[in-house]
Design a binder for these strands. Sequence first.
DNA 1: CTGTTAGCGCGTTCAT
DNA 2: ATGAACGCGCTAACAG
Lengths: 365, 365
Amino acid sequence: MVIEEKLIKRFHKWRCPLASGIRGPDGGGAKLIDVARLANCSPATASRVLNGNPRVGQDERERVMRAAAELGYVPNGSARALRSTRSRLVGAIIPTLDHAIYATMVDGLQAKLAEKGVSVIISTSHYDLDLELEQTRLLVERGAESIVLVGSTHSAQTMSLLDQKQVDYVFTYTSSVAEAGAAIGFDNEKAGAAAARFLLDLGHKRLGMIAGITTNNDRAKGRLDGFLSELAARGLDPAAVPVVEGAYKVESGRQAMRSLMDVPQPPTAVFCGSDILATGAIKYCHEQGIAVPGEVSVVGFDNLEIAELTSPELTTLEVPAREMGNLAADYILAPAAQKRYLRQTELPIRIIVRDSTGAAPSQAH
Amino acid sequence: MVIEEKLIKRFHKWRCPLASGIRGPDGGGAKLIDVARLANCSPATASRVLNGNPRVGQDERERVMRAAAELGYVPNGSARALRSTRSRLVGAIIPTLDHAIYATMVDGLQAKLAEKGVSVIISTSHYDLDLELEQTRLLVERGAESIVLVGSTHSAQTMSLLDQKQVDYVFTYTSSVAEAGAAIGFDNEKAGAAAARFLLDLGHKRLGMIAGITTNNDRAKGRLDGFLSELAARGLDPAAVPVVEGAYKVESGRQAMRSLMDVPQPPTAVFCGSDILATGAIKYCHEQGIAVPGEVSVVGFDNLEIAELTSPELTTLEVPAREMGNLAADYILAPAAQKRYLRQTELPIRIIVRDSTGAAPSQAH
DNA sequence: CTGTTAGCGCGTTCAT
DNA sequence: ATGAACGCGCTAACAG
């Protein structure tokens, strides 16, 4: 009776293996038990061998390895994850892959994790916190052991979900940690302040800024705040500093620069929240015959490859995108004992001085 | 006895939930059975509701939904995948995320798949076919239902693994399919030929090419072959056409251009296998005071955002990166019956004429 | 060092 | 329309 039932089940399995290929039981579906049988041992031993458990004899080990190779055995990750509660999966939620600054971070993250056999599930939120929550839910569902997020501003539900499901997380592009989790990044306010200082030291008195959209974007907001604070600290009135926000597109930068420059007393120096915006700004200056840096200095942010393609080449602040990805991976892979010490890693921001900045014009007319 | 044993198990579970939070059984680990209990029904019914099975009463359905929400229930993807053999996971193996052309494709892929609750695992091969094989194995292990690859050149082992494990796959950036799977892309040879035709029609007689590294890269090779074939078809000697290969870096393009131009009779038109290379080429011309397009025309490939940032702006061939990602997603999500018709999708390649190309100099000295 | 046993959480039969 | 039982493939616990 019992045997009969099993046979029926098997029959069902043969008939509809989902795809149309009529595959014998040996073809694609070698399981651990098949390996064990071929190696003349129990599935437990086979499992131990394949997981590098050292407490296995030399001959057993070799027989299992050979059997696995011969059968082309590929373990079933779902079963493994279910049983061991370790998925070896990490999630990353970034605004978009269309911006090199994020793509490069993910590249660095993935490269380091892949070395240890950990895979990265990627998803994009388009700067939308509700979407981010949904993506988070999906990643938790998939069993992600850690989730990499951008910035430190996230919906309360996202954070409590992570907290409740005990999923480790790491913020990037920021240095402010939450109660749990880690932050691998830099201080956007300090960076903004550094840009201000640099321009002030060149003698500029009329400054402006083209910022990224600051809504739901603590990085863009931080750069802006830091920039204005430093100006205030040096005796300028922040309220008198023209600020335009724009999406991270060349065209936005171009239009923003027009609205900044097309006034009676335009700024002599403009800080841009991204190289993309800065590039657009310089493009506008070209079109209008405005000399850079003769009439106006331009500072970017990110140090993308394009910063060396503009003429003049762009002075900018370097964002260590790849390094953040690498370090986030290090944190994720670190043993729990070490995580304490890695969880708040602030990277320095260097200013890369090129040719788009110069001394303030001697007399501002 | 039996009951006692169960209690012991539970005790173990409480004590070491892997992380340090001492969490009651209600806190983070609501399972389907908890939802069922709270909703006063069997786990089977709860499962049906959560999977949208219509054969459930209205009241039951609502009770289950409410219970799930109240408990913050998140299904366990591994268990689900194990039981249903559907992981809702797709893998993508690309050379690198550091090149916008691939990052954008993945962005398009991910966006479309996410709409249907399918997640993307990403991994990078760095143009290394052995690494690609390893990544493939890992993705198969993770249960990827489909795998997106770049180009049509892959190791035999990779292909046989996919074949044996019945994993669907789709090539991108190419129009040549394998026996199984799909190809969503364009014909690189046709594209190379189109570039040649365009330059020939402008009257150029001395042409050159800066190609990407063609080793293991059928796309780079295809563009080169197509370019040379078309020249041959128009009566030029392909052997006399100078070709330099370079990695996709601005600096490579710059150096390649130097070796092309620093000869007695330099070409009057150069086709570059990528906008990155073309940008470097133009940079070299600036440095040397070579007029573009006055003395030499330059054509790029990809139509990246940087193509509009060079001066002169770059004439280039548009690669539909995002669209390929979208269409790959469509193919993957399509019902088996439709896949036949989608599996070979060749996208047209447009030439975007900007200012880096012009008529051949009237007398080539 | 090895085998035996049990069950991770869920979806899916088969009954009713 | 609902519930009971079973097992997906694997590894953790225990016994020897």
